[in-house]
C-alpha cells in the first residue's frame, strides 16, 4: 500500500491509510467514538446520526469523524465539553424517538445505543426531553425477520445493505419527522419482494430489524 499516515487521537500516535476516515482509524485502534450510521465500505458517508463528533486541532468547532479524512500530523480529540454536549443532546434526541424495551428486545446487550450510553455515561431514558412516540405497527409478517419501526433510528444501514447485497426492497419514504425505512407502498415484508436474506437484520445497530427466534 501507499505511504501510511501518522496522526494522534487523544494523544495516542496511530497510523492509517491515506483516504481513511478518522472514525475508522480510531475504531481500528480501539479508540471508541459513538456512531450509528457509518459503514466502512461506503465511501460517501451518510453523516446522518450526528454522534461521532470529535475535535480536530485547528478546526473552529467539532466535526463528524465519519466524514473527516486523516491527514499527516492531525491531532484529534474524542472528548471535550463541546463534543460531549453534542453527543449527549443528539443521543437524548434519538432516545426520545426509540421505543425502549431492552429487557424483551432481541438486541439487548448487543445494541449500539446501550454501548454509547455505557461508554459516555449517558442515560438510555431521556432526562430533559419528552418522548416522541410514533406508535407504528410492528411488521412480523416475514418468516425470518421482525421490523419494529418504533425502534428505528433512521441510520440507513439496512437500506444501503439491502440495495447493495439484498433484494433492494428497503428504502426511505416521506420526510421530516415522518421519514421512515419502509418498502414500496409500505407493504409488510411478506407482501414485498423480500427474499428474507437477513442482511438488514445483520447490520441494524439497534434492534429495529431482528431475526425472529425460531422457538
Amino acid at each position: 500500500m501507499s505511504q501510511q499516515i501518522t496522526l494522534t487521537i487523544d494523544g495516542q500516535e496511530i497510523t492509517a491509510q491515506p483516504g481513511d476516515k478518522v472514525l475508522w482509524a480510531a475504531l481500528a485502534n480501539k479508540i471508541y467514538i459513538p456512531h450509528l450510521c457509518a459503514i466502512e465500505e461506503n465511501h460517501t458517508p451518510f453523516a446522518s446520526c450526528r454522534l461521532c463528533f470529535v475535535e480536530i486541532k485547528g478546526y473552529p468547532s467539532p466535526v463528524t469523524a465519519c466524514t473527516e479524512t486523516v491527514q499527516p500530523g492531525m491531532a484529534v480529540t474524542t472528548r471535550s465539553p463541546r463534543v460531549d454536549r453534542l453527543v449527549r443532546t443528539g443521543f437524548e434526541m434519538l432516545m426520545t424517538n426509540h421505543r425502549l424495551e431492552c429487557n424483551i428486545c432481541p438486541a439487548n446487550h448487543s445494541c449500539a445505543l446501550q454501548r454509547i450510553a455505557r461508554e459516555r455515561g449517558l442515560s438510555l431514558k431521556p432526562k430533559e426531553l419528552p418522548l416522541l412516540e410514533r406508535n407504528l405497527p410492528v411488521d412480523d409478517s416475514a418468516p425470518g425477520i421482525i421490523y419494529d419501526p418504533n425502534k428505528c433510528v433512521l441510520c440507513g444501514r439496512c437500506v444501503w445493505v439491502c440495495k447493495t447485497r439484498g433484494a433492494g426492497i428497503l428504502g426511505f419514504a416521506r420526510r421530516g419527522f415522518d421519514r421512515m425505512v419502509t418498502t414500496f407502498r409500505d407493504a409488510p415484508l411478506a407482501e414485498s419482494n423480500c427474499n428474507y436474506c437477513d442482511v438488514c437484520a445483520g447490520v441494524c445497530p439497534v434492534g429495529a430489524l431482528t431475526i425472529k427466534c425460531m422457538s
Binding site: 433492494g168 426492497i169 428497503l170 420526510r175
Partner: peptide, 12 residues
Amino acid sequence: LPPVEVYGVVTF
C-alpha cells in the same frame, strides 16, 4: 429502479 426508490421520491 427498485420501486421503493420511486416511492421514496414521490412521498418526499
